[in-house]
Structure formats: C-alpha cells, structure tokens
Design a protein around this nucleic acid. Sequence first.
DNA 1: CTCCAGGTTCCGG
DNA 2: CCGGAACATGGA
Length: 281
Amino acid sequence: MTALCRGRTVAIRAPDFDLAATLECGQVFHWRKEGAGWLGMIGAQSARGLVNAGAEAAAREYFALDHPLAEIYATFPGDPAMAAALAFCRGMRLVRQPAWECVATFITSSMKQVAHIAQISHTLRRRFGARVELDGRELFAYPSPEAIARLDEADLRACALGYRAKNLLGAARMIAAGEVDLGAVAKLDDAAARAELCRLPGVGEKVANCALLFAFERMRAFPIDVWIERVLRTIYFPRKRNVTPRRLREFSAAYFGPFGGYAQQYLFHHARKTAKRERNR
DNA sequence: CTCCAGGTTCCGG
DNA sequence: CCGGAACATGGA
C-alpha cells in the first residue's frame, strides 16, 4: 500500500497502513494535519526528531507496523456490519501509546466529543508539557504525572476539564506517589491490570479498557462507549429489550475473539464517520 | 434552546 | 447486578 507518515520532512513506508485513519479514529488526540502530512509527538520526541536521530524503529514501534493485519482480519467475525467496518477502515492500526499519556487523555474523555478531548489535550500540553522545537514550530509533550501532580485543581479546570479536573489530578498524584505503577501494570494479566487501572480516580471499566487496548497491547480489551453500545444493540441485539451491560460485555468477549479490540475500533470509527455523513445529507 | 458527547461514582431496588 | 442522577463544557 502507500507510504505515509510525513512529519513534513520524512516518510515511513509500510504496507497496509492508513495513517490518516490511524490518527483520526479517536485512539490518540494530539496529531495535527499539516499540508499533506501530520505533525505530532511520539512520547517525548517530535516525530521528525525521532527520524533524524536515526530511530525510525521508534516510529515503526509507535505505529505498530508489525501488527499482522491480514491475520488479525482473519479472526474477525464475518457478519455484514463487521465486513463494512473492515472495508471502511482497512489499514488502520492501533498505535502503541505511552501509558500515562493514554490513561490521562481517556480520563479527560468522559462525556466529551473527540474534538473536545483533542482540545483539552492540546491545552494541557501547551501549558504544562515540555516544549520541543521543530523547524521553528513548537510541539509539546504530554505533561508527566509529576508535572500535573504539582498543579491545583483550579489550574486544570482552567483548561476546560470541568469535573474531570479532580480525577486527572488525583490520578497524577497517585502515580507520582508510586501508589500505582503503570510499569508494573504491564506485567499483570488482563483482569489484574484492569483492576489496578480502575484504582485511579476517573478510571472505570471503559477507560481502563481503552488504556489496556491503546497502551498495553491487550488486543482483547473491548471498550464499550455510547457509539459501540449503539452498534451492539442495533446490529447484534435488534429489537430486544432488557439487554444488560453484563450481557453486552459477555457477547463482545465471546463473539469478536482474540483481536476484539481491533474489531471494536473498526466498528467505532466506521459508525462515527458514517453517522456524520448521514447527518450532513 | 435542546441534545449529546469514547463515563464514573454513588445510591436505592 | 441493574437503572438513575449528578457531574461540566462546547459544538451541532
């Protein structure tokens, strides 16, 4: 397929890679379209800084270019809804995000549209994150737990976080204090890792599953948000009442298989984009 | 103006 | 375990 990933100066080649879908599907929120390419950071470094340093490997790691998409697709169920989502999203990859950045952005995601989450992410980065130069442009890393832990709740509310300010602050302080160790979470099995993440304020099952999927490579993690719930209810439980959250969880885990998280993200992106198109009609 | 957005937490059946 | 309500903010 196409070679993509232009941080304005450099390209990375890979087959079966749709960079735009990967960056626009609502898994990561800070990349910005610039001309024909995208500008953003991979952890603490600008995408171009990485390549200049001769570490293209880091970009390949971040964008998960090693994920065997053909094999993953082969595990998807063959129903029409899944087929349509696959056709729409083919080449979209689940990136490997830095754990704290992922946990924190999804703490701020509750009851927010994707555009709002991105706005909050940019404000936090600009105000409290480490600044990096890139050709006269400036980029900002996501602020560390320690940097946020030093702040006041009012500082965060001033970034339009609303009630989420208390949660982000509390989570940052727990991690800065060593009460929760994200490095240790990586070594736990799925259930234990989920439970450990849920100790953080503002992290419930859905946010924990996003973190497991987008930062901890748990390909079975299946976040159920309002969009996915709508898909599940309308496509897989048509005109059925009393379908409980527990039932949706159990169905998803059994039906979508070992790469359920990938299936979930494809269904999510497809549902959101097609819904927007319908609305504009 | 009303409705809704990648939810979590707490509270009463 | 389940459904409801409170919790902030901004775009459609």
